[in-house]
Amino acid sequence: MIGASALEVRAIPPRKTGEFCGFTDAVQILQSTVPYSGPVRLTCPMAAGLYLWEREVVAPAAEKHLGSRVVRVDHLGTYSCRRIGGGTTGRPSEHATANAIDIAGFRLEDGRRITLASDWSDGSDAERAFLRAVRDGACDLFRVVLGPDYNAAHRDHFHFDMGRFGTCR
């Protein structure tokens, strides 16, 4: 028998905060398989994808490559009214509609901290394998997955979103 989901959310009222910013059908994650470093407010599809990523990708990869359980995910943010790259022109970011999250690292039960900034290129073989496994596994769950191999702006985090375009880099 499969147990009940660990995911608990609270609906967030729709918000319109600018020309292209705001969200509908968004939730705040109250509880999941692992805590986050700060509030997580996302669209429903993003919250569901994140939960599956934690459970089906992150947890097994941590056990396999690091021999420890993830006890916290460090993130850089979800909703942010801005354009891609933070400039004044260009397409709106998926963050502008609560349809994205930026993941910076992981805290482990054994006390280690794995970060993209420190461990993507310079970590141990196991740390690098873990980070690549969680990135690769995310590609099956999110439309866009960007990381340090994409460009310098993503050198310290993974960007996941459920936007219209698809890429995994």
Rank of each mutant, 00 (worst) to 15 (best):
M1T: 06
I2R: 14
A6H: 08
A6Q: 07
E8R: 15
E8H: 14
A11I: 02
P13K: 14
P14G: 02
P14C: 00
E19S: 12
E19Q: 11
F20C: 06
G22E: 04
G22K: 07
F23R: 02
T24G: 12
T24F: 13
T24N: 12
D25N: 15
D25R: 11
Q28S: 12
L30W: 02
S32I: 03
T33Q: 14
T33N: 13
T33I: 07
G38V: 05
P39G: 09
R41W: 00
R41F: 02
A47T: 02
G49D: 08
Y51H: 15
Y51D: 09
Y51N: 10
Y51W: 14
R55E: 11
A59D: 07
A59W: 08
P60A: 05
A62M: 03
H65T: 00
L66D: 06
G67C: 11
R69A: 11
V71S: 06
V71L: 08
V73M: 07
G77N: 05
T78M: 03
R82V: 01
I84Y: 14
G86W: 08
G86R: 13
G86K: 11
G86I: 02
T89R: 15
G90Y: 01
R91I: 02
T97Y: 03
A98C: 09
N99L: 00
N99R: 03
